[in-house]
Amino acid sequence: MILIYADNINGTIKKSSLEVITYGVAIGKQLGTEAQAIVVGAVNSDLSELGKYGVSTVHQLTGPDTFDAQAFSKLIADKATELDASVVVFSHSLMGKALAARVSVRLKAGLVTGAVALPDTTSGFVVKKSVFSGKAFANIRIQTPVKVISLNPNAYTVAVGEGEANVMATPVSIQPAVKVISNSKSSGDRTLTESEIVVSAGRGMKGPENWGMIEELADVLQAGLACSRPVADAHWRPHHEHVGQTGVAIAPNLYIAIGISGAIQHLAGVNRSKVIVVINKDPEAPFFKAADYGIVGDAFEVVPKLTAALKAGA
């Protein structure tokens, strides 16, 4: 069977979790076996609804109210062993990254992180993943009987149908070694890597005081906000918004780059975006070569017009 770990944030099942459930269910169909989900902690929705995405059973381990990778990994690995899972699937999210590595060691299972497609099971079990910061893909064979995969956010489309999952709740308790002292939210519950649309701006904006129009465009598109490395290095924007080879690598459906020239290191982090729009006043900006749509023009004029046009047509 396939065991799928569904992340939740403060009780809300994430979209990336629905992607990973859809993905795990598809692997199950491919291998002729059923898929079940595991959730740790309390959630504020009816877990039987995850049946709509194809899982027959949801194992809910209730009790833990904060995430702890070390403790959660034990719980997930034990469940995988108990259920004799052949594939354990995670989202390649902030939490999933930490869990997948630990669970793979506990199960002595080969691990592929950042998968972008269903495994090829025609000869063995080969998983395609993004490498070289988005500049290439590698096909990796997992050679162990049990396999662990983490799926890149936004790499697999959620499929919803009919169904109701059987929810099996079991209370558990954990003793985390890591003590959480405080936390602060800066951008809602949305992580840049999981945003479907990302609006990003660079040095062409001239200074942090000009970000208002970027934020307005992002608002109208309900998009995540990003920036180029020089902008983060100059402290115009926080570090977590820096996308590129040494920042965050993203693969949204739409990436709008404003006043970013498109250095190779920046492209590496964003070139898996499905559609790229570049707005730059320099027609020679290398980014246009990687773009689907472009406007050669002054961002200070184009961006407010674009925001207005999107609002008008909404």
Partner: peptide
Amino acid sequence: LTATVSFEMPPAKAGVK
């Protein structure tokens, strides 16, 4: 536990509109 079978490049963009 794993082995790299092959690499591939992403498909080229059709060109900017």
